[in-house]
């Protein structure tokens, strides 16, 4: 059984050595994961966070960029830990969208 992250040796295309400049929100999710996790509050382990990402449905997983995957995995893990609910996140997103 191959989880969606276990891709060593699978056929794939050329490597693009260029990258994009990391966006502020991408740095922010990196910081949130680190702060909630092993670097600071230790509410989660790095292992739980990896596992939460890998638990995503494969088709969905494959459609996400690296940091989108982090965001989705993190929300699921926080819900699992009883810290917040996805519905709260979605409600807050709607509020932020309409905030002047």
């Amino acid at each position: 059984m191959r989880r969606p992250n276990d891709i060593g040796g699978m056929p794939a295309g050329p490597v693009n050595p260029a990258g994009h400049e990391i966006e502020p929100w991408e740095r922010l999710i990196t910081a949130l994961v680190s702060t909630v996790g092993p670097a600071a509050k230790k509410i989660t382990t790095i292992d739980e966070f990896r596992r939460a990402r890998e638990d995503l449905d494969k088709e969905f997983y494959d459609s996400l960029t690296y940091f989108e995957l982090w965001a989705e995995g993190f929300v699921n893990l926080m819900e699992e830990k009883g810290v917040l609910k996805r519905s709260e996140v979605e409600a807050r997103m709607a509020a932020l969208r309409s905030r002047p």
């Binding site: 966006e23 929100w25 965001a71 926080m78 807050r92 997103m93």
Partner: peptide, 12 residues
């Protein structure tokens, strides 16, 4: 996703 991350940050 930018909104999602900010929403999560605010809630946390």
């Amino acid at each position: 996703y930018e909104l999602m991350v900010h929403a999560v940050k605010e809630l946390l």
